[in-house]
Design a protein around this nucleic acid. Sequence first.
RNA 1: GCCGGAGUGGUGGAAUUGGUAGACACGCCGGAUUCAAAAUCCGGUGGGCGUAACAGCCCGUGCGGGUUCAAGUCCCGCCUCCGGUACCA
Length: 972
Amino acid sequence: MPRYDFKSIESRWQKYWEDNETFKAGDPSSATEKLYVLDMFPYPSGSGLHVGHPEGYTATDIVCRHARMNGRNVLHPMGWDSFGLPAEEHAVKTGTHPRETTEKNIGTFRRQLKMLGFSYDWSRELATTDEDYYRWTQWIFLQLFDTWYDAEHTWTGPDGEQRVGRGRPIAELPIPDDVAAAGDEAVRRYQDKRRLAYISEAPVNWCPGLGTVLANEEIVDGKSEVDGHPVERVALKQWMLRITAYADRLGSELDALNWPESIKLLQRNWIGRSTGAEVDFYIGTESFADWTSARGQQGWPEEASDDVLRVYTTRPDTLYGATYMVIAPEHPFVERLTTAEQSDAVQSYCRAASLKSDLDRTELAKEKTGVFTGSYAINPVNGQQVPIWVADYVLISYGTGAIMAVPAHDLRDFEFAVTFDLPIVQVVKPPESWEPSKDEKAAAAEVNGEQMTPFSGRGTSVNSGDLTGLPTDELKQKITAQLDDSGLGRSAVNYKLRDWLFSRQRYWGEPFPIWHELDADGNPTGLMRADEPAELPVLHPHMDDFQPTGTPEPMLSKADDSWLYKTAEDGTRLKRETNSMPQWAGSCWYFLRFCDNKNGEAFIDPALEKYWMPVDLYIGGAEHAVLHLLYSRFWHKVLFDRGHVSCPEPFHQLVNQGMILGDTDYSLTADDYEANAELIAERGLDPLRIRTDDGERVALRNPSDDSTKYCPLKDDQIEKRGRSVFLKGTELQLSGRTDKMSKSRRNVVNPDDVVKDYGADSLRLYEMFMGPLEQVKPWSMKGVEGVHRFLGRVWRMVIDDRAEELALHESVSDADPTADQLRVLHKTIKAVGDDIGKLSLNTAISRMMEFTNFMSHEDVRPKAVLQPFLLLLSPFAPHIAEELWAAIGNTDTLAYEPWPQYDESLLVEDTIELPVQINGKMRAKIQVASGLDREATQAAAEADPAVQKHLAGGNVVKVISVPGRMVNFVVK
RNA sequence: GCCGGAGUGGUGGAAUUGGUAGACACGCCGGAUUCAAAAUCCGGUGGGCGUAACAGCCCGUGCGGGUUCAAGUCCCGCCUCCGGUACCA
């Protein structure tokens, strides 16, 4: 086997690792330090692995292999996020059970990952669809159901940190006397409203055309992705998770994590904490003076009563400028506040708003719409009457669903006031230096014959009664304190983050372990019962067909009665919850189960949790920067509060790999194509129409037998003239782009093909050599060939590729290394080790290429130099490294060989080349002994003839001499 | 619009954090080997001026300013591209 035969090498070593369970994680032990390295587990789609997957997987594999060689006990597992829509859609089309499809796809993914030689501990493999797995997903849901959030509770967790606020058992929820007095049922309803998992009415996307409920991602522009049927929003009882209770901790506990700052920021913005004040505007019929004095005595009520409209504002300092109010169309007071004359207008406005999706509402952002209710409220600071409007630019889901409008200092209010001719009162004077922002300028309008520009920044108050003349920040505090004293308002915090809509109407998701009580007529009473943990898992009902229900009812409501109903021991009829959990559920805690995936008694053994958690390094795509990571952190914190896990955060270090784009694709506009279709056909090129954001384009491809294979134009088929690109020999201008890989563009590279042609080691190496891990990078087949050639050179550096049998290259010997060889080796050891630590894997590979380029030219290649190099190479290209390691005379796998150590003293070169600058321009290079001091370096520079030539006739004003770096003469 | 990231040869990308810009590759050009090809090996390769050849010089990290002995790197002002987000009061 003289040639580098990657096929046989790779399959042989993969079998060896599997047979010997080489990468099984060790048991917890105090002697070895643990390392938990995790990849975001994939959704096993029908199309199999994509070259984007192995990017992060290779990086983590390198880290793990390196860590094992450094004596760490490494946990590196893989599994499948296998619930999800596509398998169910396939079931609708073909009748194949989603489980069957899922298992087939998992099989493909597993085969493909094993073919890449990743060092996963496969004994820990799991799928979220395993009954033994989702049993515990349901169990965690019951924990959420059993928990309420005590925002006042001060406590110290097992991590030694003191916190305020804790999720506690629902049994510990204090029950007010009047509720307790009302009886057991009232208590249960009181508790149900406060659980972290609760039921609430929420809109679902109901598509009558398809007879099914759709997920948000199945909707494009308010129409179903399939066939473009219109989608309606229908209110349905749905499960919600109270993630907002944890908003503060989810924000503040990000600080200590070793995550990219940009991702932390993304999460903070998503949580969107803002501080301001809640203020009550009086809408009652009694006298305003009586109401304010009553408030002064009784103080601020927790729950707003019916005689006030409560608003949230971040700018309480502008209260004097509030000239009208707006409530959301869904606000509970709409009906009450609407006068008879306005009734028709308000009703039709609200109905129209309810049909609009969120997207439609924002689409119309330019044009403000709304309608007057006919009612007025009283501004608490100046007693003035202000009209109350209904408008959809106010969202029911944020704050109190009502605002005080300050048109002079809020762009949206300003636009609205201009549209409906409402009064605008300036209460903040801008600072002298103020220049209107782009937005402010754009909003500027003519009001009463005068040009007005809104000002939304900070300044000094005017027209604000006693509080005139104060800077914005000071006034905010002062007015909030005054409102608080008089019981008219108080400081408040709000979040953009909403509670998590946790139910779907699908079959292929975890069923809820919840029963609804029915009354004698079979109608739900609104009371619920949870399954006992011992009764889990709640399995899916058997179904013969997966056709949609034809109503907004969930798929599981089609189950037969034996699944849907039962009678409790106390005789109560019960009906099962028929919603299912979203795909996010299973991925919220899989990293915990990997620590102890066979445990039948608990979701995780506490000792194993304590040993392995948290995940030390977590690598995955940035598309999960917000939702998956936020949801997981939320669940983890609930489990932490309830004492089930010992650390407050699940992922210590997070790295996002950059997307891999397709190889450069050349295309022309549809018009150009039509005009030149013949020319293109003559050249035997395949036109491919592609829809893009800015119209249709036609990509030109080379023909291929395999229609799925991506064959873009090659460099010799195009011609560059200046900045433009033309189809070679024509006047046809093309544009070259690198796009996201997608089926519709047909530019997807299949790892199977790459492995077949170049081998797994080449694929792994190329994935890392392309560029920095975090960066977006275009794929290039030429690049794969490049690293493949490198592996060939490594092979020939060690092996005699002309021999019939496997034999070492004649230059390989037992001789002692030369000083040069040692220096190059040790520099490489240092560089590669440092680079792995920084995840700078592309440069690590460069360093190994430099080593190979050097060593291949040596006539004597001591094993003492080659062996450590093979160890350095092994995390990157493990198959060839194992093969050469064996060829050179070792009998055991190198997976646990100690990582080579470098000797600092061997790194120093005898002489170094230094640049000499004159006035900052490089003019000469001098050879000096390394370690030369400042003066001697300068003297050496002055002695150089080239330097002397430049210094001649000049006046040396200053000399900067940095030993080991450079010398600079400043000459006048 | 706002937030984040990035602009370096024909291409992907390096540059010890202010100290020789273009490491390592791809591509291209020339050569060796070969009956020929593939594979492999050797040499060259930022642009320009210049030389018989060396030498030498000028320009050059998106654009315009600035700080510094010295700027791809720091500061100010722009431009372009990519990603996220969307009336959050």
